[in-house]
Design a binder for these strands. Structure first.
Length: 415
DNA sequence: TCTGGGGTCCTAGGACCC
DNA sequence: TCTGGGGTCCTAGGACCC
């Protein structure tokens, strides 16, 4: 057992809320929430009242009447998140960033430079506090999964090092919910078996877990419970899909609303694809009804696309197919478009061998190619004059999009 | 109690091929 | 004539992550 605890998981605490408290000192020590209709992040003072991320704003106000809703400094979130992760990067280039506010690091090769992983973790925490101004928790362990659990347990503003010899002891009494991959549903299923802690999980036969949870989840949990999960930090991986969605409260399922919304969503997705010379073969549209049930329709095309109008057209067909299967639904609450089966080199589109336009069937000469060329010129104009200079659906929608683009970009992962 | 947005992975059934 | 097995791809839904 030569393996040592050299994987770090660094996770900024209550990130958006902490940034707001950093920018406005009068908010420090007070219960605040970032968001509006839904809580995107809650300060620890708010969490003490039971306020949680993802919670409807109304519910949060009930739990904590003095709760203050703040936010809007999206650019600062990005900047400060980057700055904090860059501190970690000073200790190793082996960084796997999972989101704006957390990252794994493999510091095995840095020990001779900076000392023990624990020492590095302490320095990271101090420097992020001093140089960025934000609290960050760090877990150190032999594997990614363990390090992640350790950082969760360390919160808020803490550090936990799990020595390889103390892993089982550390995990034994922790709730299964702390494990990556165990959400509310799996937690309930395990509870029905009388399994509440990771220790109890480790005592459960792997076969029973797989029967109850399926091969993937059951096998994974078994592997983790016995400490056999992988430790590789992946420094770069490519996106497997690109998507955009728009929640709309309650809207009639009519063309005057669906058409512009889909063009707007297709524009966002296709622009991101083209920016990285990528295109996708599988188009998925999602429609959510007012009772929050959602249906999806997808199609896999013979060739990859990244042209905005084609994507919008395909998505529209899919949305209407979904609506046709649910004629009783007169209103919708969300539309989404996703593109997957991504391929490189969208230039191939110029020789697009198929056509979605019924009037054009000859290879490579149809509107598909023409539209792609048009899109590229739109992209260029936007690069020079800003995104608002040329619009698809957003103009028609009259800027009714509730979430600012700056916020959307925080959630986007590199294509 | 009715809630955003961007993602990943898994499962199950059916079509199709050999 | 209605019978086996295996592999791959597609589609729809779902759980989960931040």
């Amino acid at each position: 057992m030569a393996e040592t605890a050299t994987i770090l998981h660094a996770d900024l605490d209550a990130f958006y809320a902490s940034v707001e408290q950093l920018l406005d000192p009068s908010l420090r020590g007070k219960p605040i929430a970032v968001g509006g209709g839904v809580v995107l992040a809650a300060s620890y003072e708010a969490k003490a009242f039971g306020v949680r991320g993802g919670m409807p704003g109304r519910r949060a106000r009930q739990l904590c009447p003095q709760l203050r809703f703040v936010g809007g400094h999206y650019r600062e979130y990005q900047r400060l998140g980057d700055q904090a992760i860059d501190v970690v990067r000073d200790f190793t280039p082996l960084i796997e960033r999972i989101s704006i506010d957390e990252a794994f690091a493999d510091v095995e090769g840095s020990v001779h430079l900076f000392g023990t992983p624990e020492r590095m973790a302490r320095q990271i925490r101090r420097r992020v506090r001093d140089e960025v101004g934000l609290p960050i928790s760090v877990g150190v362990a032999r594997t990614k999964h363990l390090a992640k659990i350790a950082s969760q347990v360390a919160k808020p503003d803490g550090l936990i090092v799990v020595d390889p010899g103390a892993e089982l002891e550390f995990l034994h009494d922790l709730p299964v919910r702390l494990m990556w991959g165990v959400g509310p549903v799996t937690q309930d299923r395990l509870a029905e078996m009388g399994v509440h802690t990771i220790g109890q999980l480790a005592d459960t036969p792997g076969r029973a877990l797989q029967r109850l949870l399926g091969n993937a989840v059951g096998g994974k949990l078994g592997a983790l419970a016995w400490n056999r999960d992988p430790r590789e930090v992946e420094t770069h991986h490519r996106a497997r899909s690109v998507s955009a969605q728009s929640a709309m409260g309650r809207r009639p399922a009519t063309e005057d609303f669906i058409g512009p919304t889909l063009r707007h969503l297709a524009d966002r997705v296709a622009t991101r694809l083209r920016a990285k010379n990528r295109a996708g073969r599988t188009i998925t549209a999602r429609v959510r009804f007012t009772d929050l049930r959602a249906v999806t329709r997808s199609i896999t095309l013979p060739a990859a696309i990244s042209a905005t109008v084609i994507l919008a057209d395909v998505a529209k067909d899919l949305v209407y197919a979904a609506l046709a299967d649910h004629p009783e639904e007169r209103e919708i609450s969300l539309l989404a478009i996703a593109v997957s089966h991504l391929e490189d080199d969208a230039v191939l589109q110029l020789e697009l061998p198929f056509e979605l336009d019924h009037e054009e069937r000859r290879p490579g000469t149809g509107k598909g190619a023409a539209r792609w060329v048009l899109d590229r010129s739109v992209d260029e104009v936007r690069e020079k004059f800003g995104r608002e200079s040329v619009g698809y659906g957003s103009v028609e929608l009259g800027e009714r999009t509730s979430i600012p683009d700056e916020f959307r970009e925080l959630a986007e992962r590199p294509v």
